[in-house]
């Protein structure tokens, strides 16, 4: 048996049952082979549903299953770690024409993908506000901060933080859709935190997470919003657990 041919037939229902496959009756049976086809499709779709539960609720189970099937046809997991499957799913959703009526869907998926990464990220104690305060003021502007392994920023033209939050309980909460939002995802200890932050704070956070100095990041933030509150922003991000420490 050629396993690649067998697997190709699993992934493409239009292909016949592979040669060499039989049953106790001495003949191939499409319904039997279909059990394997179904197992692959259902288990991978289920893995995506577990990683993108809000996306699934937004579009409904049937639509999600169809979208997942289309994604699976383009991208199989690259490892047996199912919680890591779907890193490229948000980009796929962005280009999935039947979902075009929900323009915020892809960014919601981006938020959920980052949530899972944060959930499984390494256990590292974040930089504390006290440690940051211990830094000599004249060194602050040139200092760079190492991102915490769980920290991620999702910036969207839509209210993805509010949408995500509204779908955390059994009842869907109130939400607006069209307000741009930036969401900071962190995990200072074991619980993943999802916080909507102000636009200038997001510019600041994005620059810091890219490895720019605190001074450069603050300049960019002031350029966005002259009322940017530097002290509140750096203390806020640090308190959320965005940084692992000072970059060396």
């Amino acid at each position: 048996m050629d396993q690649n041919a067998f697997a190709s037939a699993l992934l493409d229902p239009t292909l016949p049952v592979p040669g060499g496959v039989t049953s106790a009756r001495g003949e191939a049976d499409a319904a039997r082979f279909a059990v394997y086809r179904n197992n692959v499709a259902v288990s991978l779709s289920k893995a995506l549903g577990q990683r993108f539960p809000v996306v699934q609720r937004l579009v409904g189970d049937d639509f999600f299953a169809g979208m997942a099937r289309a994604y699976i046809a383009t991208t199989l997991p690259d490892s047996p770690l199912m919680f890591a499957y779907g890193d490229t799913f948000p980009d796929f959703v962005a280009g999935f024409a039947p979902a075009a009526a929900l323009p915020y869907l892809a960014d919601t998926a981006r938020l959920e993908a980052q949530w899972t990464r944060a959930y499984h990220a390494a256990d590292i104690a974040p930089l504390t506000v006290e440690a940051l305060a211990g830094l000599a003021p004249e060194l602050l502007g040139g200092a760079r901060l190492a991102p915490h392994p769980a920290a991620a920023l999702v910036r969207s033209a839509y209210s993805v933080g509010m949408i995500w939050q509204a779908h955390q309980g059994d009842e869907v909460g109130a939400q607006t859709v069209m307000t741009p939002e930036s969401v900071m995802i962190t995990r200072p200890e074991f619980d993943v935190r999802v916080h909507v932050i102000a636009e200038a704070d997001a510019v600041f956070a994005a620059a810091l997470l890219r490895g720019e100095s605190i001074g450069e990041a603050a300049t960019a933030a002031f350029g966005t919003d002259p009322t940017f509150d530097f002290g509140r922003a750096i203390v806020g991000l640090t308190s959320l657990g965005a940084f692992a420490g000072l970059a060396s």
Binding site: Q3, N4, A7, S8, L10, L11, Y36, N39, V40, S43, L44, A47, T75, L76, P77, D78, S79, P80, M82
Partner: peptide
């Protein structure tokens, strides 16, 4: 499969 993991 050559293109990835099939999870079955």
């Amino acid at each position: 499969h050559e293109s990835g993991f099939l999870n079955d």
